[in-house]
Computed example of a mutant assay.
Amino acid sequence: MATIGASSVFACPIPPPAPEYYLALGDSLSVGAQPTSDGNLIATDRGYVDRLYTAQQHVRPRLQLVKLGCSGESTTTMLSGGICHYGGAASQIDAAVNFLATHRGSVRLVTLDIGANDILRCAKNASSIDATCAQSGLRDIAANLPVITARLRVADPAADVRFAAMDYYDPFLAASLLGPEGQSAARASLQGADIANTLLRTVYSRAGFLVTPVASGFATHDTTPVPVPGVGELPRNVATVCQLTWACTPPPTGPDIHPNDAGYQAIAEAFANALGTATHK
């Protein structure tokens, strides 16, 4: 009887497991944007996407992160392009659809944050938004977001890919620190944020996306007075925005609407809770 040498047994190595992917899409939040000490906005590796990716790797160690987010992106530019460039793709959505199509069956998670810039372009200053412009922005979201979500779902309809998206916190609550006029502006901004978030949640739910309640994580509607060292008492929603973003930071670093490290951690935890995954700070 012939014998098989040890070298013959291992002559055909087993190929390594195929990679899995987390595709991150959206605006400046998806690239972890934060201001530098001189107020310049830069992308970082400390955003909610990076933190959520680390958490997901504990569940899926073969997971790889692909970021396609674009600072300044609105629902309109996500479809038409014009801000960031993606090689052979005309827009972020085209690049995302191409990636999903060419990696069908290997993408495990897609996250999305989009729509804030449709409204933020209407800000006259730190405490005032043009109402007519904001209505136009809401119409843009209503028209564009269903197209975005549909194109993503069609590109990879596999049952094991999870799509998750978020609503937004209200950075204009920080205007409450500017006196009675600022407090009035903050109340008005909260009403506008509610309308926008209701629209976002409705579209995402209809598209089968997990909806991540970031607004709740930022205590957006909690007006309970809380003590703030060096300031006195503030409504909890205002104190939380000051704690988790750069909106209350003086020049030159702020004021800036983007989250700080603690804010991005809070967003990551909100996504993780929606997905049923723990995060690690």
Rank of each mutant, 00 (worst) to 15 (best):
R60F: 09
F209S: 04
G230R: 09
G69F: 02
A131C: 01
L178P: 02
R139I: 05
G254S: 00
T223M: 09
T277G: 14
P252S: 08
A18D: 13
A270D: 15
M166A: 15
D222S: 02
T249H: 00
S127N: 04
F10G: 04
A207V: 13
I141Y: 00
A150R: 13
S136I: 11
Y48S: 13
N273I: 04
V214Q: 06
G208H: 10
A185N: 15
F218W: 10
L120M: 05
E269C: 11
F209L: 03
S106F: 13
S216V: 14
A274Y: 15
Y264A: 07
R108W: 11
S91I: 14
E233W: 03
A134Y: 14
L41G: 09
A95L: 06
D160Y: 00
P227T: 12
S30M: 05
P252D: 01
L152P: 04
P259L: 11
H85I: 08
P227K: 03
A274V: 15
V241G: 04
L120I: 08
N125W: 02
P61W: 03
W246T: 11
P15I: 00
I257H: 10
L275V: 12
L25S: 09
V238P: 13
A150W: 08
K281F: 15
F271P: 03
T75M: 01
V211A: 02
C122S: 00
S176E: 10
G179P: 06
L145W: 00
K281T: 15
V110R: 09
F99Q: 03
F10M: 00
R62Y: 08
R201Y: 06
A266T: 12
G26I: 11
D194P: 07
G137H: 00
P255I: 09
V241K: 11
A219Y: 15
A193S: 09
T36G: 06
G217E: 05
A196V: 13
V203H: 04
A186M: 11
V9E: 01
A174F: 00
T240K: 06
A239H: 11
T212K: 07
T77D: 09
S205M: 08
G87Q: 04
D50K: 01
F218K: 02
P250N: 06
A95R: 12
V214R: 08
K281V: 11
A174D: 01
L52R: 13
D38E: 14
L244S: 05
H58L: 14
I93R: 06
S184H: 02
G179W: 02
L109H: 10
P61E: 06
F209W: 10
A247E: 05
T198V: 07
N40F: 12
I83H: 00
S127L: 06
R139Q: 10
E233K: 03
A262H: 05
T3Q: 10
S184E: 05
D27Q: 09
L25E: 14
E20Y: 05
G87M: 06
T76S: 14
S80R: 11
D118K: 08
D130S: 04
P13N: 05
D140C: 05
A188L: 12
A6N: 01
D118C: 00
A123M: 08
T220C: 13
I148S: 01
Q243P: 02
V107C: 02
H221E: 07
T149Y: 03
D94F: 07
C248L: 01
L52M: 12
A158E: 10
M78P: 09
G69T: 02
L234M: 03
G254L: 09
G179D: 06
L190F: 07
S8A: 05
M166H: 05
T149I: 00
Y22C: 02
L234D: 03
